[in-house]
Amino acid sequence: MDGDLLLAAIIGVFAGIASGLLGIGGGILFVPALTLVLGLGTVEAEATSLLAIVPVALVGSWNQRRYGNIRVRDAGVIGLLSIGGAVAGVALANVLPEVALRIGFALLMLNLARQLVARGIRDRRARLAS
């Protein structure tokens, strides 16, 4: 196994564990790891992440369905409508400058961090009040 493949495997294992444990999207972990560790460009990292998340999503969904946590009809609607969004997103990613994609991804991560901190503060206050 060459070095890049080994690093990709390690990234996959840790991202899969975090994704299953925390319910976070794999792209949140895959894209930065692929750009920083493997040196992929933003578009390559995003495309690779999209393909890599397919087996993770299938396994996670299969297990969650066994627990009765999936609304199959809603998931089908979201999945079908997401196909058009994915096609539009790929087209947009291919015409935007890479720096715009990096800035957009960074803003997305900052907003996610803000939401997580706000939720943690809110939950802590609720626990202390009860």
Score class of each variant (00 low, 15 high):
75 A>N: 01
124 R>Q: 12
62 W>A: 13
112 L>G: 03
91 A>T: 06
116 L>M: 15
78 I>H: 01
14 F>M: 12
62 W>Y: 15
32 P>R: 01
58 L>T: 11
86 A>H: 00
15 A>S: 13
8 A>M: 14
118 A>E: 13
97 P>I: 09
18 A>V: 14
104 G>S: 07
10 I>P: 01
10 I>V: 15
11 I>W: 09
8 A>N: 11
52 A>Y: 11
61 S>P: 00
78 I>S: 01
104 G>A: 06
20 G>I: 07
13 V>F: 10
1 M>F: 13
59 V>C: 02
45 A>Q: 04
123 D>E: 15
75 A>T: 14
121 I>Y: 04
49 S>C: 10
40 L>H: 06
87 V>M: 11
19 S>G: 05
33 A>Q: 03
129 A>H: 08
84 G>P: 02
35 T>F: 02
90 V>N: 08
85 G>I: 08
82 S>V: 05
12 G>C: 09
47 A>S: 12
45 A>E: 02
33 A>L: 15
102 R>C: 05
110 L>D: 10
77 V>A: 06
102 R>I: 11
40 L>G: 00
94 N>F: 10
37 V>M: 12
69 N>E: 12
80 L>R: 04
6 L>W: 13
119 R>L: 14
16 G>A: 08
5 L>Q: 13
47 A>L: 15
42 T>P: 07
108 L>F: 15
93 A>L: 11
64 Q>Y: 14
95 V>P: 00
26 G>S: 13
2 D>A: 04
116 L>A: 14
93 A>R: 03
91 A>S: 07
120 G>H: 09
96 L>I: 10
50 L>S: 03
21 L>G: 03
116 L>C: 09
26 G>V: 04
125 R>S: 13
119 R>E: 13
41 G>C: 03
69 N>M: 02
22 L>M: 07
51 L>Y: 10
126 A>G: 02
96 L>M: 14
72 V>E: 08
44 E>K: 06
99 V>W: 09
92 L>M: 13
46 E>V: 15
120 G>S: 09
88 A>I: 13
78 I>C: 02
31 V>R: 02
52 A>I: 09
60 G>Y: 04
102 R>V: 08
33 A>I: 07
32 P>W: 02
6 L>G: 03
88 A>P: 05
20 G>P: 05
77 V>S: 01
67 Y>F: 11
73 R>A: 11
28 I>P: 00
88 A>G: 04
59 V>N: 00
76 G>R: 04
22 L>H: 00
83 I>D: 01
120 G>I: 01
31 V>A: 07
65 R>F: 13
4 D>C: 03
114 R>I: 11
